[in-house]
Amino acid sequence: MMRAAPWLYLVAAFVFIYLPVGALVLFSFQGGSLPVPPFDGPSLQWYGDILSDDDLTDALRNSLIVAVGSAAVACALGFLAAYALARFVLPGAALMRGLLIAPLTVSYLIVGLGLLMVLQRLGLGLSLWTAGIGHVVINLPLCFAIIYASMGAQQQNAERAARDLGANEAQVILLITAPMLAPAILAAFFLSVTLSWDEFIIAFLLTRFDITLPVEIWSMLRSGLSPRLNAIGSLVFLVSVTAVLLLEILVFRKRA
């Protein structure tokens, strides 16, 4: 009995962890119009339904644009700052590191609220751009921290060698440092894409007409349970899982 206890706990934990996801995916194939037991599928009608819904496909496209765009900007800025702080002796470096990490400690709601007020003061309209700006704010600290942590002496030697051989600073950064740090940069990029793709509250506060997928899902939620929500939720889950598995296979497998 005592030997079986850990395995029972493991099974119970996995049931708890997969219960909502299981219900979500299973009832996305529901035949009827209520995503609750009994299951009367499988049917693909709800997937057909959401893929022909322009609001949803627009939101999906908007989400992808914001996620990839903001992740790219956050990675580029984070990489340059990490390079600067790891390779140059700058006065106030500790303060700058603190400043770059600071947004991590503040909840997204507060980041979004602050930005919203500034944009309103300036009289700027809300759009995908403003949501993207907010997403860079929350992803920049992560990108900086991940890339900064992986800047080691190993790359520094290669950088010195390149400089001795006549490379200028831009060549060193683009041809030596960036490729050597590719795993960290990729990890930062994928993490940012997933976080931005999922993010609700900043996107909700900072967009108006062009909305991202989580915001669209939120507005669909007001009309209650529906297999359409299951179908779109399952698709979103599939995208996130693909990103995570890609990261696992491309980045972490190599290291192991």
Partner: peptide, 21 residues
């Protein structure tokens, strides 16, 4: 499932916990 969108994750719990859930 940590990587499920959090709006979707909450909705999924609603499916499980709803009156007919």
């Amino acid at each position: 499932p940590f990587w499920t969108s959090y709006v979707v994750r909450s909705y999924a719990w609603l499916l499980v916990l709803a009156r007919e859930g």
